[in-house]
Design a protein around this nucleic acid. Structure first.
Length: 744
RNA sequence: GGACACGUAGCUCAGUGGUAGAGCGCUGCAUUCACAUUGCAGAUGUCGGGGGUUCGAACCCCUCCGUGUCCACCA
């Protein structure tokens, strides 16, 4: 027997033994009560990072503990198609081949991404196995599996029937680079220092950071109580601009802060959220809005000679021209404010008027709040309960339309007949070249079938009142006469993952759903509380009437040794698989959870992991000592004078670990078992044994008990020892019974 | 501007009403003893400051200071 434990030589074989033994499947006994965790599905296309290792570890600890307690334990794994991220990565790949999404029709592009993801999808799963994840792989689901898609569509149809879906034109945060709009939860806010311009505007001077949108101004607003401008309210003013003079109405709105800038604000409803709201409040006073920036981030034809220019270039040129025309009242000032950027590519988002599908969220909130009030669902994680309530009470309608192909296509069909002139679309012609325009332009030349088959995107826009296209919700093409085209937008990825606990169980069979829903613990990072956990509650309760989980355990972010955020640019990223390779899976597992606490970030460095590698070696050597003692033991094992104290202490340890795990205090449980094993069992008890103060039998009981207690945290080394010389040839540790404490 | 956290050993963090803890680091001693991926001994703490409740507070309450994160429409 080697002096050191060698994880590399043993871990894979142990995992295979567990897997082929079928030990990950739930206990079939009818008396066993269920314990369920649905795994947060990682991006199918990405290798695991340290944050994944964190959730794998915590969930596996809970799963192994409950399995050893004899419960019918299901850990259902899966992966997510991660719409925007994956399409973005794929497009970068295309760019390297001098291609873009515009070179392909929708269907072809989807298939290419599908194949690309298939190539990579095994990686994350293998990595989870390396970390020891005892998930039931037979229940595995991918968010684009046909059975999952069918369920997700069903939910949408139900929402529509219940009048909880609407199609509406709103201002949407749109990424001109990724080519899609978002919901407000996906917008990241970053501080930006920009110029605040002071522009002569008729009789006023106004302060703006965005002179390039002034071509779309439809009003000027002042504060109703601002004495300086009171006489102008309700009047029209004449403004000399870069493209000539025009007239605008002056309106009064409380939103204008008289203290800021000059107290005069231009109103550009289609390019600013506040202005949009002002327009809504003064809809009778302000004429129809104008759009000056398009989806490509370029200025539209209303910008005259600036049309076609990118925002940044246009702004610079406009600044110059304003200066030359003497329209700048004074030099610009540096101004720091927050702007929304794309969480994926960090491009500054443009507020643009888009027609999208929305889910009415307010009617769904009540059930979620009730679940929190009654304790049906408990949130673990410093203060996160209150944060969730805050989100729930301030929720907005959910924009679920995404202008990408990598996702579940929205099951909505438009009848374009009679609206051919207004249906904008892009498709590939017979030479594979992109054509863009209205259906009316191309219908005769290419025929409807060709256009449909080679379609990239359709935008049927918003018709004026009473002149809307028919749209019907249907999974298949409607049979009625007409020119039917399916919406090209896909669902927000979070719309499918928001149903994850429900649909993964349902698609594993009605009996599985019946038994394991609602699930026991949802374990994930606090950073996705609103974007994911909240939505799972909303949709889960909506579909099933029950909150999808009893407890939400929100782990913290993993940071580096100094508590710094890990990032590629800082070069402080720890790859969990490298650490497994170097120190063993057990070491990184316990390093991640020991002394961690829900909702609080966790600092982990290689030193920490090395220290825990030493701990797994310590376990190994303690076992080795017991084994050697047995070799030299005499036939009769005399009781030791410390036996009673030893057993009592052992029992207390079992008790406290059990209590801690029941209370989901995983970090403290790990710390306790580590300390008791090392500093009591090894440092005290084994030394007592050397002086013959405790019996070999007591020492052996101690070892087997500790192997059981340690197993959820460090499954490999404990299983290896168990199989090798504690329980040779008998059932493996993974399905051994959790010790009962008798005397405490 | 608001919300939520956090401030405990050199560093990173547990502990959350009853004599201050862990990991990593540091100092000294120990080497054929299960393990040097070790053991023993040790140093470093007014548990952010102040006030209150209590027989007793790192822990509960108030307040101040500092840090972080998220949210928010000041162009």
């Amino acid at each position: 027997m080697d002096k050191n434990f060698d994880p590399k030589a043993t871990e894979d074989a142990i995992y295979r033994m567990w897997e082929t033994g079928g030990f990950f499947a739930p206990n079939k006994s009818s008396q066993a009560k269920p314990f369920t965790i649905i795994m947060p599905p990682p991006n199918a296309n990405d290798p695991l990072h340290i944050g994944h290792a964190m959730f794998i570890t915590i969930e596996d600890i809970l799963i192994r503990y409950h399995r050893m307690k004899g419960e019918s334990t299901l850990w259902l794994p899966g992966t997510d198609h991660a719409g925007i991220e994956t399409q973005f990565v794929f497009e970068k790949k295309l760019a390297k081949q001098d291609k873009s999404r515009f070179n392909f029709d929708r269907e072809t592009l989807y298939k290419m991404i599908w194949d690309y993801v298939q190539e990579n999808s095994g990686v994350a799963i293998d990595q989870m196995k390396k970390l020891g994840a005892s998930a039931d792989w037979s229940t595995f689901k991918f968010t684009l599996d046909p059975d999952i898609v069918a369920r997700v569509l069903e939910t949408f149809i139900k929402l529509h029937k219940d009048n909880l879906v609407y199609r509406g034109q709103k201002l949407i945060n749109y990424c001109t680079k990724c080519g899609t709009g978002y919901s407000e939860l996906e917008v990241e806010h970053v501080e930006e220092t920009t110029k605040l311009y002071f522009i002569k505007y008729g009789p006023f001077v106004l302060a703006t950071t965005r002179p390039e949108t002034k071509f779309a101004d439809t009003a000027v607003a002042v504060n109703p109580n601002d004495k300086r401008y009171k006489s102008y309210i309700g009047q029209e003013i004449e403004v000399m601009g870069l493209l000539g003079t025009f007239k605008l109405k002056v309106i009064a709105d409380d939103y204008v802060d008289p203290e800021f800038g000059t107290g005069v604000v231009k109103i550009t409803p289609y390019h600013d959220f506040n202005d949009f709201d002002v327009w809504q409040r003064h809809i009778d006073e302000i004429p129809a809005p104008k759009q000056v920036i398009d989806k490509q981030g370029k200025l539209t034809s209303i910008a005259g000679k600036y049309a076609g220019m990118k925002i940044k270039a246009a702004r610079e040129m406009i600044e110059k021209d304003l200066g030359e025309k003497g329209l700048l009242a004074k030099p610009s000032e540096a101004y720091t404010h927050n702007v929304g950027v794309c969480y994926r590519c960090k491009t500054v988002l443009e507020p643009l008027p888009l027609t999208q599908f929305f889910i009415k969220t307010k009617p769904l909130v009540e059930g979620a709040l009730r679940a929190l009030d009654t304790g049906e669902t408990k949130i673990l994680g410093a203060g996160q309960d209150k944060i969730l309530r805050h989100w729930l009470t301030n929720i907005r309608d959910w924009n679920i339309s995404r202008q990408i192909v990598w996702g579940i296509r929205i099951p909505v069909w438009y009848n374009i007949k009679g609206h051919e002139q207004r249906a904008w679309l892009s498709f590939l012609d017979k030479e594979g070249k992109q054509q863009q325009g209205t259906l009316a332009q191309y219908l005769n030349e290419f025929g409807f079938d060709h256009i449909k088959k080679n379609l990239q995107q359709i935008d049927v826009g918003t018709w004026s009142e009473g002149n809307n296209p028919d749209w019907v919700v249907s999974v298949t093409e409607p049979s009625e006469d007409g020119l039917w085209i399916q919406e090209t937008d896909t669902f927000d990825t979070w719309f499918s993952s928001g149903q994850w606990p429900v649909v993964t169980l349902q698609t594993n069979g009605a009996a599985v759903f019946e038994k394991f829903y609602p699930t026991s613990v949802m374990e994930t990072g606090y950073d996705i509380l609103p974007i994911w956990v909240m939505r799972m509650m909303l949709l889960g309760i909506y579909v099933t009437g029950k909150s999808p989980f009893t407890t939400v355990y929100l782990h913290g972010l993993v940071r580096d040794e100094k508590g710094q955020k890990m990032s590629k640019s800082k070069g402080n990223v720890i790859n969990p698989l490298d650490m497994v390779d170097k120190y063993g899976a057990d070491a990184i597992r316990i390093a991640l959870v020991m002394s961690s606490t829900p909702g609080q970030d966790k600092a982990v460095g290689e030193n920490t992991i090395r220290g825990m590698r030493n701990f797994s070696n310590k376990i190994w050597n303690a076992a080795r000592f017991v084994y050697m003692e047995k070799q030299h033991a005499e036939a009769t094992d005399a009781p030791g004078i410390e036996d009673n104290n030893f057993m009592k202490k052992l029992d207390e340890t079992v008790h406290s670990i059990t209590q801690l795990l029941n209370a989901l205090r995983v970090g403290l449980a790990a710390e306790t078992v580590h300390n008791e094993f090392w500093h009591w069992y090894c440092d005290v008890a084994i030394e007592q044994r050397k002086r013959k103060e405790i019996s070999l039998q007591a020492l052996e009981t101690g070892l087997t008990t500790f192997l059981t207690l340690l197993h959820p945290f460090m499954p490999f080394v404990t299983e290896e020892i168990w199989g090798k010389f504690v329980n040779d040839g008998r059932s493996p540790l993974i399905i051994s019974s959790w010790p009962e404490n008798k005397n405490v």
